[in-house]
Design a protein around this nucleic acid. Structure first.
Lengths: 335, 335
DNA sequence: CTGAAAGCGCTTACAG
DNA sequence: CTGAAAGCGCTTACAG
C-alpha cells in the first residue's frame, strides 16, 4: 500500500538502515555519481524501491543549491504569438521536472525589470529564459545579472554573446516560394503586411531568394499594408484588376491569404487550379475544427521555439549567437 | 553597489549581527508574525535594507516546508482553449511569486497520471491545479492523493466536495440574448454547434431562458451541426431560404457567426441594420490586428478562469462545488 | 519580548 | 569503496 498522501515519511536514513550502509553511501548510491561498488548500489536501490523512497525535493535543493526552477521573464505574455512560446517552454520544463517562475511585464521598463531580476535571484533559479514579443525589438541584455545560464527567445538581445532563439522568417519565405515552384507555378505575386515590419522584410527576402535561384521573378508589384483579412481582400482585388498574369500568390500571413481567398471565391477563380495561395502562421492550426482548413501555410513553429529555448538552459549550452528555428510547411487545399 | 550576480552572500545571521539581536529574533522580526517590539522590528528591518538582505528561498522552503511551487496537471495543454487557462494560471502564480510545475498528459490515462501524482508529491508542491480541456468531460478526482489544496479548472470533477471552476455557458447564452433584446430585436434565430456538445446545450438553455423572461420565442428551428465557418454559412443560407422573418441571429460560436456574416455580405443583407449577429468566444480578440473586428461576441474569459482557479490555491479556500466565471460582452460592429 | 538550540533531510568534501 | 561529520540558511517550539 503506497503512502496515499505522499507525506514522504520515508527518509534516506531509513533506506540506508535497511540497506545496512551509511547515509552518505546511500546518497551516493542513489545519485549514481561517485564510485560505488555495484553490489552496494544494487542493495541501496532495492531498499529504496521496497520502501518507496522519494527524496524530499526541498532538502535536495537546499543541500545541492539547485532549485529545479527556471525563471521566465516575459514581455507581455498574453500576446497572441508570445503565448505558444511560453506554453512550449513551460511544457518542456515540466517534462524535465523543472518548475517555472514567470514574471510578466514590460521588459523595457527598467524599474519593474530590476525588481523582477532581484526576486528571481533570491529564488535561486537555475536558469533564466527571456521571452520577447516577436523579433521586432531588441531586448536589453540581463545576462550579466545572473550567475546561471540565460537564454533569449522571440527577441534579439543587445549583447552579442547571448544565446538567442528566433523564428526564421527568411526560411518561411523560401519555403513558401519553393513550394509554389514545386507545384509548377512561375507567375507568383506577393501580398504582405506593413513595409516597416521586420517579418515582412525577411519573408520577402527569403521569397525573392528562392525565386531567384530558380530564375524566376515575382510578378506585379509587392503590395504591402496591413496584416488583416480586409487588406488581403483589397490587395488581391488590386492585383487581379491590374490584369497581372498570375498563377500563385505568396501572402505574408494567413489573414491576408484568407482575404485573398475570399476575393477568388467571389469572382469564381478556382483555388488552387487557377491561382494557388500560401500564407504564414498556420493560423488555422489553432482553430477548433481541423477539418475546415482552407489554406496551405508555413508554420513558424513558435511552440517548438519555446521548447528549444527552454531546453538550452538544461543540457549543454549552445553556442552564443542567434539560433533560428526551422518553419514547416503545412499542406492545405489552397496549393 | 548592489550584488550584481545576486549570489546572496548576505545571510540572516549578518542582519542579526548588525541589528544586535539573535538569529531567531531577526527571523521573527522580518517574518512579521510573532510578537516583537516595534523598536526591534524596525532595527532589524533597517539592517536588512541596508545590507540588501534577500532571504535564500531554498533555505526558507526547506525550513518552512513550503516550496512556493504549485503543481499543474493539464489534459493536453496545447488545446486551443486550454492554453489561455494555463497562461492565466501561470501568470497569476508568477505574480504571487509562486513557481509552476506543469505535468501535461492525458488525465484519463491512469498509469501516467499516477506517475505525475508521485512526482508532484515528491516536489512538495503547495497546491495542485487540474486543468481539463473544456467542460465536456468529468475528471477523476485526485484530491485524496494530496495533503495540499487541489482545485479543478475547465473540467468537472467526479467528487462533489472538490473545488471546481468552469466557464458559464448558460450565462453566455443569456448575455447574448439580453444584448440582442436590448437592441430592440425580437425575431431572433439560433445557429449552433453539434447537439451533443454540452456547451451547445448550455448556451441554448441560457438563450431560451433570457428570451422567455422577455416573452420572446426563438424564430425558426435551432440549426445544430458543426463549429466551423462553413457550417455557419450553410446554416445561415438555410435560415434565409426558409423565409423566416429574422432580425437577429445568436451564433453558437464566432466561426459560425463569421460564416453567417459571409452569407449576409454576399446577399447584400446589412449587418446589423437588417440582421444583427452575435457569437461566442471572442475569437477575434486573439487576432493580431484589433481594428479588423467584425463581430459582437461573448467572451468566456478563460484566462480569468485560469487566474481565479490558481488564486483559489493561495488565499482562503473557496467553498466546495462548482464556481462559474462570468462571461463578458464584447461589442463589435455586428449588433 | 528575546535568545539558545534543535531541526528541516539531504549533499559533499574529507579521512580512512 | 565506505563512513563520520559538517554544512546548506533558514524556522520554530521551547525556555527564560
Amino acid at each position: 500500500m503506497l503512502d496515499p498522501m505522499g507525506s514522504g515519511q520515508v527518509r534516506l536514513s531509513d533506506v540506508a538502515a535497511v540497506a545496512g550502509v551509511s547515509l552518505s553511501t546511500a546518497s551516493k548510491a542513489l545519485s549514481g555519481s561517485t564510485r560505488i561498488s555495484l553490489a552496494t548500489r544494487e542493495r541501496v536501490r532495492a531498499a529504496a524501491t521496497r520502501l518507496d523512497f522519494r527524496p524530499d525535493a526541498l532538502a535536495q535543493s537546499f543541500a545541492s543549491g539547485r532549485s529545479r526552477t527556471i525563471g521566465v521573464l516575459t514581455h507581455r505574455a498574453t500576446n497572441t504569438f508570445s503565448q505558444p512560446v511560453l506554453i512550449g517552454a513551460v511544457l518542456l520544463l515540466g517534462e524535465q521536472d523543472q518548475a517555472t517562475l514567470v514574471h510578466d511585464g514590460d521588459v523595457a521598463v527598467h524599474r519593474r525589470l530590476g525588481q523582477s531580476v532581484r526576486e528571481l535571484q533570491a529564488r535561486r533559479i537555475d536558469g533564466l529564459l527571456v521571452i520577447g514579443d516577436g523579433h521586432e525589438q531588441v531586448t536589453a541584455s540581463v545576462t550579466h545579472h545572473f550567475a546561471v545560464p540565460v537564454s533569449y527567445a522571440f527577441t534579439a538581445s543587445d549583447a552579442e554573446e547571448d544565446v538567442v532563439f528566433l523564428p526564421d522568417n527568411e526560411a518561411a519565405g523560401r519555403i513558401a516560394a519553393e513550394h509554389l515552384l514545386s507545384r509548377g507555378r512561375r507567375r507568383i505575386a506577393h501580398l504582405t503586411g506593413p513595409r516597416q515590419s521586420l517579418a515582412v522584410q525577411l519573408r520577402e527576402t527569403g521569397f525573392r531568394e528562392a525565386l531567384g535561384s530558380a530564375g524566376v521573378h515575382p510578378v506585379g508589384p509587392v503590395l504591402r499594408s496591413h496584416w488583416g483579412r480586409p487588406w488581403g481582400a483589397e490587395a488581391m482585388t488590386r492585383l487581379l484588376d491590374s490584369g497581372t498574369d498570375v498563377d500563385a500568390v505568396f501572402c505574408g500571413n494567413d489573414h491576408i491569404a484568407l482575404g485573398a481567398l475570399d476575393v477568388c471565391t467571389r469572382r469564381g477563380i478556382s483555388v488552387p487550379d487557377d491561382i494557388a495561395l500560401i500564407g504564414v502562421d498556420n493560423w488555422e492550426g489553432v482553430v477548433v475544427d481541423q477539418n475546415i482548413r482552407q489554406l496551405t501555410t508555413v508554420d513558424l513553429e513558435l511552440m517548438a521555439l519555446g521548447r528549444r529555448a527552454a531546453a538550452s538552459l538544461l543540457g549543454e549550452r549552445p553556442t552564443p549567437g542567434q539560433h533560428r528555428s526551422p518553419p514547416t510547411l503545412v499542406q492545405g487545399p489552397s496549393t
